[in-house]
Design a protein around this nucleic acid. Structure first.
Length: 507
RNA sequence: GCCGUUAUCGUCUAGUUUGGUUUAGGACGCCACCCUCUCACGGUGGAAACAUGGGUUCAAAUCCCGUUAACGGCGCCA
């Protein structure tokens, strides 16, 4: 048996990401892609993307595009694969059927694989039987030594066989970079099906062929593949292929510690994009799920991650996807980022995911920048802009008049406060209508006015609500500057009207 | 059921290889206080963990053995 392990070639390691387009690109896959990418960049190797679309029933074009879009959004560029090509293509398994067929025939000819004509029903029954006996379900090997002529006859009759690989009965050991030595008793596995037909290869088989032909040196993938590894190694050995280096990543888990899935909440990369997370933040967060520096550094750009990454520091146990920490990363990135950059991204976000785009077009070009300079400390992701800062993006704001009333102030008090505020606002010239100035004007008044001296909220709270319509918002001065003098006056007058219409009448 | 993997604060983790420097460090979250018209931001402080039993040793989160629990796999899916 060949135990030859691929040594890093002259050209450096080659790693790959091999997603299947059977669903939206999962954050777990994104992390696997990230680790592969980091390793390739760190070592000067190549990161290859291969689409595993041999399952014709489940593979969909739209999911294929989603994989590509998600990877691009995250900033993980592949060196070979769809769109960019490469010398070991094609990079879609569905286009490699001739290749698989060739190797399948070779295995059959060498008697290392055989046709199996057992029906699904028979197999199911056997499986059940073994389970009852407390044995691991395993194929009996009934067709293993079928007579050649009988095989020919069945084939001629048009029977649809599957192709099985003859598994040895030995113990197989392999080295995992993250976990060390892993042993399996092959006698427990039985002859696995490697293809449904000459042109219908199954995962375990096609991966081995592709990894070999694409000269993959390191297979970095999820822990859920550990039990596939021995099978793949046996296929490699039957074919005389060298063994790549394996690294099995811990799983990403949901709150209940089971593999992260839809029932735990949003799981696809695009959903996080829609929620307004920054790709940088997602990448940073994902990198720290199962990998950590010995120092306390956590905020790391993709460049820094590349510099500092090492397979050795990957964790062995699964990590729970904690969205609160993602939120924290996102706020950090939002605040650290250059304001113009944030504005550009927020603009794009609002245009694609909200209906505030039109409103924005009618405002001065620096309007969004003003909004963001005020709202940035208050949001964790762009969708918060839609939910909590909508008053900046709408002509009409809706709120109840009770919200305008401060503590134990009466509606009359509130009208008085608003009128006073209106007076101050009106006295400030358009070109001096800035936050700092507004604040000075208001506080000068407050300090001389006994009614408000010790209860600033009596004046400021109704003002703020009049402008925002919210219980929680930036200060009235900040909002006023962004809104501009005219809009500010308009909203205050509206508030006064609102109380006059309802609040006063009630008293 | 069988096989495999894993086990430090609620969560992500440092420390485990080479036992003592650890009254176990950091981050997220949580709580309190300060700032304050509200909400955030910011600042200060706090609660919070070595799964369990047994060894070895002067000394164990760190080494050895057992137990338990959790998860993953056991597809003519990938």
């Amino acid at each position: 048996m060949s135990d030859s392990v691929i040594s890093p070639s002259l050209f450096g390691p080659r790693v790959r990401m091999a997603p299947s387009p059977t669903g939206l690109f999962h954050v777990g896959s994104a992390r696997t892609a990230l680790f592969n990418y980091l390793y390739a960049r760190k070592t000067g190797g190549k990161f290859i993307l291969r689409i595993e679309d041999t399952d014709k029933q489940r593979s969909k074009k739209e999911y294929e595009q989603n994989i590509i879009d998600s990877l691009k959004w995250l900033g993980l560029k592949w060196d070979e694969g769809p769109e960019v090509g490469g010398e070991y293509g094609p990079y879609y398994q569905s286009q490699r059927l001739d290749i698989y067929e060739k190797y399948l025939k070779q295995l059959l000819a060498e008697d290392k694989a055989y046709y199996c004509f057992c029906s699904l029903e028979e197999l199911k029954a056997q499986e059940l039987e073994m389970l009852i006996q407390g044995l691991p379900p395993k194929y009996s090997g009934r067709c293993r030594d079928l007579d050649k002529s009988l095989v020919e006859q069945y084939l001629a009759e048009g029977k649809q066989p599957v192709i099985r690989l003859k598994m040895p009965n030995s113990t197989l050991k392999f080295e995992d970079v993250i976990r060390g030595e892993i042993k399996t008793d092959l006698s427990l596995i039985g002859d696995i099906i490697i293809a449904k037909g000459l042109r219908e290869p199954l995962y375990n088989f096609s991966v081995v062929i592709d990894d070999y032909l694409m000269k993959i040196t390191h297979v970095i993938r999820g822990e859920d593949h550990i039990s596939n590894t021995p099978k793949q190694i046996i296929i490699q050995e039957a074919l005389g292929f060298p063994r790549p280096i394996y690294a099995h990543l811990p799983l990403i888990l949901g709150l209940d510690r089971s593999k992260l899935s839809k029932r735990h909440g949003p799981v696809s990369v695009i959903e996080y994009q829609k929620m307004g997370y920054l790709p940088e933040a997602l990448v940073n967060f994902l990198a720290l799920l199962g990998w950590h520096l010995s120092t306390d550094e956590e905020l790391l750009s993709l460049e820094e991650l590349i510099q500092k990454f090492s397979l050795e520091r990957i964790q062995k146990s699964g990590a729970i996807f904690n969205i609160k920490k993602l939120d924290w990363f996102n706020s950090q990135y939002l605040r650290k980022m250059n304001l113009d950059e944030v504005v550009a991204r927020a603009k794009e976000y609002l245009e694609t995911y909200s209906n505030f785009g039109e409103f924005l077009k009618q405002r001065p070009s620096d309007y969004l920048k003003k909004v963001l300079s005020v709202e940035l400390p208050r949001i964790t992701k762009f969708s918060d802009l839609i939910e909590t800062s909508d008053f900046f993006f709408q002509e009409e704001i809706i709120y109840s008049q009770e919200l305008l009333i401060w503590h134990n102030a009466t509606p009359q008090d509130t009208i008085k406060s608003l009128q006073k505020a209106l007076g101050i606002i009106e006295s400030i010239p358009e070109n001096e209508f800035q936050q700092a100035n507004l604040q000075i004007k208001f506080f000068t008044y407050i300090n001389d006015e006994p009614t408000y001296q010790n209860d600033k909220g009596k004046l400021l709270w109704p003002l703020r609500v009049a402008l925002s319509g919210k219980q929680a918002s930036p200060s009235p001065f900040e909002i006023a500057e962004v809104l501009g003098k005219q809009e500010t006056i308009k909203r205050i007058k509206k508030a006064i009207e609102l109380i006059e219409k309802n609040g006063v009448a009630k008293n």
